[in-house]
Design a protein around this nucleic acid. Structure first.
Lengths: 134, 134
DNA sequence: CGTCGGTAGCTGCAACCTACACCTACCGGC
DNA sequence: GCCGGTAGGTGTAGGTTGCAGCTACCGACG
């Protein structure tokens, strides 16, 4: 057992990027829907607004694919708008169905948050050795 | 635009399972490491203990693969133990390196939790229309 | 006029992770 | 012998993601 791959000599900091858990699966859709609930927008703008949601580097391709998929599913509606300066924009707005979806997804995000909270408390209990055992 | 796939007639409850965001990517490893930090265990037992961590149905294949990978990386150590009743068990214990990894991953889980908290507060602000606008 | 940078949207593809199915083997009991 | 429960393991298809690149529009500048 314990046939290490020879990476035990690397410092911990060099492995830091491997330890991340990353955003939840399908996290992009809820974030885009929330942003659209705060106001209509277009892809390029959403790209910049997605930063605070824990995405290290938002992938434009993924965002546009996500937007088109939600458009086809009726969660958002899109209208082309010619821009005064620059190429035309596809402006997205939340539909009623998208708002429903948003309300639903908040529930599952809450479950995830509860799971994370349980993790944190159990992790903290590890260090809390009762005095009687010391 | 808005070429819906014809699913708008289905009740919301029928689409509930599609709205989930699922656990974070690479969430299994942190959970297993936490369980092993609480005490040595073996795969079959971990399978049952993983329920509360938000996994709807834990995949045995994935768990065993995960355990073997962490064994090869030196995060856990394994020893075969003959069982009195039933087949032999492979008992896993956390190594010092695994404990380091656990400390690191808690940080990234905290970032995720903060992102979720921001999401929740922004979601709640949606309904809070200021009185001056009513 | 040409071309350069910034804005805007979109496609292809490889890598990765996961979920699902399936398999072997051990043991006790009927 | 055979069955069910325990325990560990493999193979693989599909979905998501990340990365790279591509078209096109516009204004500005030389």
């Amino acid at each position: 057992m314990r046939c290490r791959a020879g990476n035990e000599s690397r410092p911990v900091s060099a492995r830091r990027e491997e330890t991340g858990v990353g955003p939840p699966r399908n996290y992009l859709r809820p974030c885009v829907l929330l942003l659209l609930a705060e106001g209509t927008s277009h892809g390029y703008e959403l790209l910049e607004q997605l930063g605070p949601f824990g995405f290290v580097r938002v992938d434009p391709g993924g965002l546009y694919r996500c937007l088109r998929a939600m458009d086809e599913e009726g969660l958002v509606s899109s209208t082309w708008q010619p821009s005064t300066a620059g190429p035309a924009r596809r402006t997205y707005a939340l539909t009623d169905e998208g708002r429903e979806w948003l309300h639903l997804v908040v529930g599952s995000l809450g479950e995830l948050a509860r799971s994370l909270e349980m993790y944190r408390s159990r992790y903290q209990s590890l260090g809390a050795v009762p005095d009687t055992l010391r």
